[in-house]
């Protein structure tokens, strides 16, 4: 279930109405959806309808963004396990904020499945699903560098903007570097899961891979920093982002998102 980050980035260069929307609008939309989903009360079965509405909206946007199904499936498969694990536990435990429990089944070993626990599990999973969908939509429709410059336009402090700009620029360089290290190791028959070699040796090899990556990225950082100094970099320097106009479709999609959140809140209650 390994997926290259270059494959992730490729999706962000597709051409679609959603990809064309301004980065600022997409960031604000995503934040609005996530904050709304997280802020919903934790025990209310109406939440599921509201979250369902948002999820359908997000899926429609994904379809408009012309993202491939296999790509999306992979993204969800990577993101879901941890959250799913915690949600799946809920029917079996007693949540401290619930007073009365209705027992649905009693499993062997005295494990009880409660209706309230199950409802809570489903609700937090639904919240998680909506948030993950929003993040996946955002990160599949905007290149990382564009994301940073949009965040800068929205008022991200200049130091953080610089840090993220440098990070995003070199992420792919080091990703490929790790790929090359792995290929080199493979040609020497190195296999991380191999049980026929001493464990200490395997651990050492992993340690060397990591130290090599660390030192190489440090040295790249030094070179970059020095060449920036040569070009006049100093403490007052900041990442330049040009002005960008918000167009009518941007305003439309933003209003639509807010309207859908409002509709979910007003209509369902």
């Amino acid at each position: 279930m390994h997926m290259s980050i270059t494959e992730f980035e490729r999706e962000t260069y597709r051409k679609s109405p959603i990809h064309r929307i301004d980065g600022r609008i997409k960031i604000l939309m995503t934040l609005a959806i996530i904050v709304y989903a997280v802020a919903l009360p934790r025990m209310d079965s109406l939440d599921l309808i509201k979250l369902g509405l948002l999820e359908i909206y997000l899926i429609i946007l994904m379809m408009f963004a012309r993202l491939e199904f296999s790509y999306l499936a992979m993204r969800f498969a990577i993101a879901l396990p941890f959250g799913l694990g915690i949600a799946a536990f809920q029917p079996f435990v007693r949540q401290p904020f619930i007073q009365d429990f209705t027992i649905l089944y009693t499993l062997p070993l005295g494990i009880e499945v409660s209706r309230e626990g199950a409802l809570f599990g489903v609700i937090i999973f639904a919240k998680f699903l909506v948030c993950i969908s929003a993040v996946i939509l955002l990160s599949s429709t905007i290149p990382m560098s564009e994301l940073v410059s949009s965040a800068r336009r929205l008022g991200l402090p200049k130091e953080l903007a610089l840090l993220f700009t440098m990070m995003v620029r070199y992420l792919f360089v080091f990703w490929n570097m790790l790929g090359r290290i792995r290929t080199a190791q493979k040609t020497r028959c190195f296999e991380i899961w191999n049980k026929n070699v001493p464990r200490k040796w395997t651990l050492e090899q992993i340690g060397y891979t990591i130290s090599s990556l660390f030192v190489r990225s440090y040295e790249q950082g030094e070179r970059t920093y020095q060449s920036m100094l040569c070009r006049g970099y100093n403490a007052d320097a900041h990442v330049y982002v040009g002005r960008k106009k918000i167009t009518a479709p941007d305003i439309f999609i933003f209003t639509l998102t807010i309207a859908i959140i409002a509709a979910a809140q007003v209509r369902v209650v």
């Binding site: 993220f164 440098m166 080091f174 990556l213 970059t224 970099y233």
Partner: peptide
């Protein structure tokens, strides 16, 4: 800038 690059690593 150096820390930005190192964070990528």
């Amino acid at each position: 800038p150096l820390f930005g690059v190192l964070a990528a690593g």
